[in-house]
Write a protein that binds this DNA or RNA. Sequence first.
DNA 1: TATTGTTATACTCTATAACTATA
DNA 2: TATAGTTATAGAGTATAACAATA
Lengths: 140, 140
Amino acid sequence: MPATVTFRLGTLGALVTERFTAKLADLDLKPKHVGVLTVLAGGPPTSQQELAGLMGVAPSLIVSLADHLESIGAIARTRDPGDRRRMVLTLTPPGRKLLAKCAGLARDLDAELTGSLSADQRDQLAGALGHLAAENGLPT
Amino acid sequence: MPATVTFRLGTLGALVTERFTAKLADLDLKPKHVGVLTVLAGGPPTSQQELAGLMGVAPSLIVSLADHLESIGAIARTRDPGDRRRMVLTLTPPGRKLLAKCAGLARDLDAELTGSLSADQRDQLAGALGHLAAENGLPT
DNA sequence: TATTGTTATACTCTATAACTATA
DNA sequence: TATAGTTATAGAGTATAACAATA
């Protein structure tokens, strides 16, 4: 078992998520909040339903994630004039800065994790993970 | 964010765990049960407290995991004669067979995940993940 | 008194289902 | 009637705390 990619990605993923969660605590964010910010930064303004689909979570979860991000000024919620049922979410300038901070924390953790790898190994790891992410519909 | 190893390991880890969980459902197991079997297969018989320490979970969780594994005959629980407070867990022969089935499912998932990678890329990925796992005290 | 296993309880995360408003 | 968002409720997973047996 331990030699499988399945086992290694599962256990390392849990470890990394736990450590990233700890780093985010100061910013009053959880990993899923960062997921929302990341999706909003990567494309056009998005409705909550679209976001739920892209992230693979229930629409009701987007409500509470967006509630929090709106309360700290990281996103704006505006009603779509063309379809007043839809709430359009956009990243605010402070939200962009917040996301940049999160990315900085992620890079810090990257350095802690991969510090003992050679430059070649780091590149190979990033390349393979990027390939798997793209192939499975994860953000690029 | 998406380019960081942190983000990629976190999201891919969640994806892989979800898919592995689905494959395990037929065997009436969850990933943590496989974790217990894996630790028991990799070393000497182990007390529940030791197991909790090795897996990084609460001792009370080991109770329910071991209850289930014992009920399906995959492990045996015997009281340590030298210290009657301790329960020593050992993998039974059927437990070994069950673990082998789990490993087969993990290899199936490995093939699905890495099928589009070149042989070199697969080796590089496995090498880098193995390095990270070892460095962070995960099973090898 | 300290430790092992167990049980009781509570907390976090998230989904499902019911509800409101728009379409 | 169908859909977007919201709210209410429920379930899974796991930890913490209290407890029993043994040291």
